[in-house]
Design a protein around this nucleic acid. Structure first.
Lengths: 192, 192
DNA sequence: TTGATATAGTCCAAATAGGACCAGCGTCAA
DNA sequence: TTGACGCTGGTCCTATTTGGACTATATCAA
């Protein structure tokens, strides 16, 4: 019976527990794919090395269990499953950890901010590309929505996808507006 | 004459150069405050230890210069100024570095995503608080806009603030919509 | 037959966060 | 007037996290 010492878990550790909390058994590799696909919409996606490290750290206090699955005669993979203690730990974290502010890391806005160094043609190019990539992303999301909506017990992830759709729409519109304001700036008597 | 070896600079290093590129001489402490205030709108704000480390790293290849400023008889501070080489380095970085995707780290959405563990009252509470904090932030931003608009040479930062206003408005509306969808979910025949 | 892509990881260096600590000064209240 | 607290201006240390290089095998396509 493994002791669950109340070691503070990092955000990444709890994110991994979160992925496992939907019930399926997953390998580190699976977790990375899932994270890229779902978690990355609203949180970062941890590096795979980080995921493997967290899994080992989660196993010691008994928050997850693992077993070997033979793949073929030479290889096997290790799949992980959340335990009741792990689920409880996650719930406690969700309820007690205070909720920080959202963080945004936006390379396009970084360019705009330093517009005085960039040149407005290049700037416009960057923004237009961002707008187009956002629009493309929006279509992917719409496909994801169908997939997620079909599953049971996925009502909350579905909310996330709907939220993301609205988020990307706003992003696209904001890019458009930014282009308009750039036009206006260039026509106005801003001295250099 | 310091050699500027073309050592790759980290994102943080370039962000610091960016802050200095507006022309004023700044101490590490000033830079941290500025970063918290402006950079944090669309990029993260580096830890102060990180800022001091980057400043030392930027001085070696001659991207910034520094001088001591006596404060009182016992203490003095060190202020930094960007050099032409630094400005050129920053421009090169802006033009050649490829532009990654925006990254979002959103603790509120994390809670929503794990809604099956959280309980819908708590969830609603979290979202409402987020909406209110966003609204408050919006007012601060509006004040900042007046300050920034008054300065010359700050047209691009002004664009950023306008962009952020639209961003926070969308965030507020999205939170509101999320609350509506939660209501709908609870009235619908979702088992458990 | 060669090469690309997917699976399933490990390892390491460098970047980054974040808190503890230090010191002096100013201010406000008890 | 003494103490508490906060702001300025940092340093130092540890833990976290990233990201790339590396190892293998299997599978599919040109």
């Amino acid at each position: 019976m493994p002791q669950q010492k109340s070691t503070k878990l990092s955000g990444t550790a709890n994110a991994v527990l979160g992925l496992l909390s939907f019930g399926t058994e997953l390998s580190g590799y699976d977790l990375k794919k899932w994270a890229d696909h779902s978690l990355s919409l609203f949180f970062w996606s941890p590096a795979s090395s980080q995921i493997y490290a967290e899994l080992r750290r989660l196993e010691a206090p008994g928050y997850v269990t693992s077993r070997q699955v033979p793949q073929d005669d030479l290889r096997n993979k290790r799949v992980y499953r959340i335990t009741d203690a792990g689920r409880q730990q996650l719930i406690t974290w969700l309820e007690t950890e205070d909720i920080g502010s959202p963080m945004l890391k936006h390379p396009v806005l970084m360019r705009v901010w330093l517009g005085h160094l960039v040149g407005s043609d290049r700037l416009r190019e960057v923004i237009e590309e961002h707008r187009d990539r956002t629009t493309a992303r929006l279509e992917d999301l719409h496909r994801d929505l169908d997939i997620v909506a079909a599953r049971e017990n996925w009502a909350y992830p579905e909310l996330i996808i709907r939220w993301s759709e609205r988020y990307y729409e706003a992003e696209r519109d904001n890019a458009e507006q930014l282009l308009l304001e750039l036009d206006a700036m260039e026509r106005s008597p801003t001295p250099r």
